[in-house]
Amino acid sequence: MKNESHISLLRVNKSYQEGGNVRTVLNDMELTINEGEMIVLLGRSGSGKSTLLNLISGIDQPDSGQINIGDTDLAKLSEKERTLFRRKNIGFVFQSFNLISTLTAEENVLLPLKLKGIEDENLLQRAGSFLNEVGLGDRGDSYPDRLSGGEQQRVAIARALAHEPMLILADEPTGNLDYETGKKILDILNKLVRENGRTIILATHDRDICSIADRVVELQSGQLHDVTEFEGA
């Protein structure tokens, strides 16, 4: 783990209009993450975890503040620039897997590679090796609806890592899985992220997951607090 400040969020604010009321989700929020660090983001349902991940990925924009990823301040980018930034630098793992139902497992893994414009001769091999890593080397031709929940999430992990993103965002990756499968998925994610030296933010409401984290933060009332009482990896 290198100790450079890799990602920094400075005085980030985000609120939503709900009928006649304004609901503040993030309030002058600050966060710094070092390269290769694994952060677990805790918070109850509706606390704003997904909002925060959406801001870090450039899917959404803050009302004010800076979101620096590497040398780029996402808050200053246009929608198109944020999309291009995301396809190159961010890998996603969602709670509901969000695989593209009309592409096979292998094609789902290939998609971010192709979007990034990687024209490697061994593209298929690369996708295949990531599928192997998650234990689905023989299911490359299967469509998502033929895979179990755990298998789908493993494909999603392979997809998130395949194009070597700067940052991986995982939003409740075990939320839709049973305990055993969830545990296996976390092991795979942990292993691959660390082997590949990736930075990851893992949002969850499950405190058991904290055991794999380098650092745990909790989102409460629009601000982040460090959580120290957990068993580090």
Partner: peptide, 15 residues
């Protein structure tokens, strides 16, 4: 819509 949303999340541009 959900399919398009997923693609957009992965970095597929509006155009």
């Amino acid at each position: 819509r959900p399919l398009i949303g997923r693609m957009r999340a992965l970095g597929v541009s509006r155009n």
